[in-house]
C-alpha cells in the first residue's frame, strides 16, 4: 500500500497573530512553524499502517524552501520520503491541483490529509483533491482501518458519528481521535539522523490558477473588560445573563 500524506506548514498554535504592510501580509517575525496538528494525526496513522501493514509513506507539501524543516520533521517521525512542490501555496484550488498531479504520478492507494489548516482555515484542499481525481472522500475522520483494498472509516456527523466502507483509492481528511494523543511521535536522535539521508525531492509546480485572493486582514475588535461577580452572589450573574446579555 502506498500512502500520500499532505502536509500543511502552519504557525505554532501559541503564535501571536500580527500583520504587516497595512494589514495585507501575515507577519512571520518570531513565529515558529509546525506541522498542521490535524496533518500530524494523519501522518501518525500513516506510520501505523507502515509499521503494522508494511505501507510506504510519502509526505507532500506545496511550499517554498523555508518549509523544509517541517518536511524533515515528517521524515524524522518516520515517513519514507518527501516531495516538496516548489511554489507559494496561493489558495486551496492551486494547492489541490498540484497535489492531484503528484497523486497521478505516484499511483497511491490512499491520500491522508488534515481536515483544515489552522492558519487560513480553508477546509477545502482534501475535498477539492478528491473531486479533481474523482475518487471518494471521507471528511473529519476519527478512525480508519484498511483491509486489503477496503477502508472502514468513522467520521463525525452533526450530532453523532457515521461509519463508512469504501474502496481504495480514497481521500481521508483526519482530525483528533484518528490516533491517540499518546501515539504522536516526537522525533528522536536516530530519527533525525535517518531523516537527513531520506529522499526529499523538489518538483516544479504545474500550471494552475488560484480562484481566491486575500486582500486584507483584520483583528477582532477589543472587547470590554470582564465584569467580576462575587462568588457569594450568583444571583447577580443570573440577573446579568437574563437582563443584560439576554442569553437565558
Amino acid at each position: 500500500m502506498k500512502i500520500l500524506v499532505c502536509i500543511s506548514h502552519v504557525p505554532d498554535t501559541t503564535s501571536k497573530i500580527n500583520f504587516n504592510n497595512e494589514l495585507t501580509e501575515f507577519d512571520t517575525n518570531g513565529v515558529q512553524f509546525v506541522i498542521n496538528p490535524y496533518d500530524e494525526f494523519a501522518l501518525t496513522r500513516a506510520i501505523w499502517f507502515q509499521e503494522k501493514q508494511g505501507a510506504k509513506v510519502t509526505v507532500v507539501h506545496v511550499g517554498d524552501a523555508s518549509t523544509e524543516p517541517t518536511l524533515r520533521k515528517c521524515l524524522a517521525i518516520g515517513a519514507d520520503d518527501a516531495i516538496r512542490i516548489d511554489a507559494v501555496p496561493t489558495d486551496g484550488f492551486f494547492v489541490a491541483q498540484q497535489l492531484a498531479e503528484i497523486y497521478k504520478q505516484g499511483e497511491y492507494d490512499l491520500i491522508l490529509t488534515g481536515k483544515e489548516s489552522i492558519d487560513y482555515n480553508g477546509a477545502m484542499v482534501p475535498g477539492l483533491l478528491a473531486s479533481f481525481l474523482d475518487i471518494d472522500f471521507v471528511n473529519a475522520c476519527i478512525s480508519l482501518e484498511i483491509d486489503g483494498t477496503t477502508a472502514t472509516a468513522e467520521t463525525e456527523i452533526d450530532g453523532g458519528t457515521e461509519t463508512f466502507t469504501a474502496n481504495l483509492p480514497l481521500v481521508v481528511a483526519g482530525q483528533k481521535g484518528l490516533v491517540e494523543e499518546k501515539d504522536l511521535k516526537i522525533p528522536n536522535m536516530r530519527g533525525i539522523m535517518m531523516a537527513r539521508k531520506k529522499p526529499l525531492s523538489i518538483v516544479a509546480p504545474v500550471e494552475a490558477t488560484a480562484v481566491t485572493e486575500i486582500e486584507r486582514f483584520e483583528k477582532p475588535a477589543q472587547k470590554a473588560a470582564c465584569k467580576m461577580i462575587d462568588a457569594n452572589d450568583v444571583d447577580q450573574l443570573i440577573e446579568l445573563l437574563h437582563n443584560e446579555a439576554k442569553v437565558i
Binding site: 497573530i17 489552522i118 487560513y120 485572493e213 486575500i214 486582500e215 486582514f217
Partner: peptide, 13 residues
Amino acid sequence: NFSGKAFGQTQIL
C-alpha cells in the same frame, strides 16, 4: 482566519 484570531477579506475571482 487563524482559528478566529483574525479575519481576512477575501476576493473570489
